[in-house]
Design a protein around this nucleic acid. Sequence first.
DNA 1: GTCTATACATCGATAGAC
DNA 2: GTCTATCGATGTATAGAC
Lengths: 210, 210
Amino acid sequence: MSRLDTAADPQPVDRRQRRRDAKLATIVAEAWDLARRDYGLTGISLRDVAERVDLRQPSLYAYFDSKLALYDAMFADGYRQLLEQVVQLPQVDDPREALVRFVEFCVRFSSDDVVRHQLLFQRTIPGFEPSPESYALALEFFAIGRQKLAAVGVTDPDGADLFTGIVAGFAAQQVANDPGGDRWVRQSRRAIEMFLADIDRHTKSRKASR
Amino acid sequence: MSRLDTAADPQPVDRRQRRRDAKLATIVAEAWDLARRDYGLTGISLRDVAERVDLRQPSLYAYFDSKLALYDAMFADGYRQLLEQVVQLPQVDDPREALVRFVEFCVRFSSDDVVRHQLLFQRTIPGFEPSPESYALALEFFAIGRQKLAAVGVTDPDGADLFTGIVAGFAAQQVANDPGGDRWVRQSRRAIEMFLADIDRHTKSRKASR
DNA sequence: GTCTATACATCGATAGAC
DNA sequence: GTCTATCGATGTATAGAC
């Protein structure tokens, strides 16, 4: 929590915590790998995950209270990956071009990992609800999307729904019909230009009626 | 198979077959109901399904070779519902208006039954692949979509991908964020008009460069 | 924290009698 | 076709040694 105890006690708690966090990260990573390779998200078994990280199944309970808690950690991990990559997007001055790049990135991100897309954007696991802490990461991402939208002048709910519908659809189609490919990534620019033309049309017609 | 044996034996095979088909339909209907009510698609258990149709769990294997075979029957059933409703859409002369109505119907169809949408349009069940016979029904539906697209002059793959991306996204958002509602159904007209405007723009620019 | 051992409930699936 | 009985695998969870 702080560095007040480092003088008398050279970071033993931090060390343990770091080891624990590293093991947690390993477990989550191996769970992703299992889900990707064979079984899908609901197909992974805690016994298999434990074996991958050189633990017995009951020992996983030292890290996760339940299988759903593991899913929650994976959910948070996925959104951390997403946020980490979003902030690394190259800065673009033109907000319209920035929106295009943002959408291309989102669709590509989904295409890169099908099971990750399923966990983050589809609600496919029975009984799973992200914890408030994990969902806060999702909200953080959505806020970035809203901000990019606002930068091109879209602040009304209908316009936002139109936008999210396009992005969700391109990601879904990319994952379902061309996983790992770029068939809908390539159409993203055209889609957003189409969307922006529609925004312009609506803005003009509203101005004209005033 | 044939009617050669009906003289001596008044349709006993047909009768049995009809009873069997009726029972099959009941099983599928109850499976849908269970998936909708509580558990989701992967959450239904064969024991619960069997109980609903007054059978013991192993007796279901007289009708389905496996749980995946039950999913396959549900998949086919869902596409039959879709096709049945599509052909009942009121005839509209203007192909652009017809396309709008078609998309509104598709999004509403998804909104009407979330688990049906998941089985038909998302690939969420580990290990499930529709059989060729069931998938033929899906292809039949896709052909109708292509035909409606061709009627407004869209025959190129890019335009088709743009279209399917929009429809898939609106359906997905409707199901995920407003199940049973009409938030994205209401935006469908605007989305398709936006799409058609983009088609016009591309057609013009191609003409101009000739 | 990690282990062994164990328990319980549920699940898909199979064998074999009728 | 339907049943009873049973199997192996699974998720969940706990007790207790180290």
